[in-house]
Design a binder for these strands. Structure first.
Lengths: 132, 132
DNA sequence: TTATATACGATAAAATTAGTCCTATTTAAT
DNA sequence: ATTAAATAGGACTAATTTTATCGTATATAA
């Protein structure tokens, strides 16, 4: 329960790897996949997703790869998680309002309190803190 | 991602329902299942689990049911979650140390930092706060 | 004796997550 | 030009986890 996904895990591994390199050096999906024993295809998709969200910049062709272009201390963990996995809520009813039991639900307010606490926590942590 | 389970959800619904009743009145699984449109069997198992952890007391036979016996303000959300779902960590490697990639893993420390933050947060919230 | 409750193991169904496959496009190097 | 190595991304399969159900036993009030 309350686990993060492999996708996020792989994304963090890649980011941390890139940060450890000297400036502007490109990193390919292959390089990360080999070094950390991570599935190449899934990792590649994740890198593409990060590029799409302007966290990374992609360079195509051989000798291509990715590099970090965002200010990681400006991206909260909450935003990062949501970019990769969509809205972050411990219960679906936090976002869905079509729950059929809604009239009878007695834990909506309490759960939102929990959710807010968790969202606040991840809003206060930056990607930089995690990957530095 | 980072969702709580239905089991925990049902447990919270049941607790909140019991708290809203006058002292020492028993509540059956059927009663909760009907009122909140929740699967009876799964709810029953969850109530049994809470009884086993001395949060509830079970009374058998017809007219039987459950009542709260624990001090809910003495039980952290972290403990509650772990009683129902086992160790609470965003990544398995927080507990498992047999990860084959461990030698190459560059995010173990960062992830544990995140995990600790989350665990701290849930350690500071009590069941009472949620169900009151 | 009956009906209704808890107790609990086993299993099935559903949903989510994880991983793979395939084809296209880009581009540096030869 | 051709080749090789990279990103891009859709479709699909496999694995895992979560959710729900089934079946049987036991307890006990009426």
């Amino acid at each position: 329960m309350l686990n993060i996904t492999r996708k996020v895990e792989y994304a963090l591994i890649a980011l941390r790897h890139m940060q450890s390199k000297s400036d502007n050096t490109l990193t390919s999906a292959n390089e990360v996949a080999k070094q950390y024993g991570v599935p190449r295809e899934l990792l590649a998709k994740t890198l593409q997703q990060m590029a799409h969200h302007n966290i990374l910049e992609a360079v195509q062709g051989p000798t291509g790869g990715y590099k970090i272009v965002a200010e990681l201390d400006q991206i909260s963990l909450k935003d990062f998680f949501e970019k990769l996995e969509g809205p972050l809520g411990m219960m679906d009813c936090y976002f869905d309002s079509d729950c059929v039991q809604i009239a009878n639900c007695n834990i909506r307010v309490p759960i939102q309190r929990i959710n807010n606490n968790m969202r606040d926590m991840f809003s206060q942590m930056t990607l930089q803190e995690v990957t530095q």
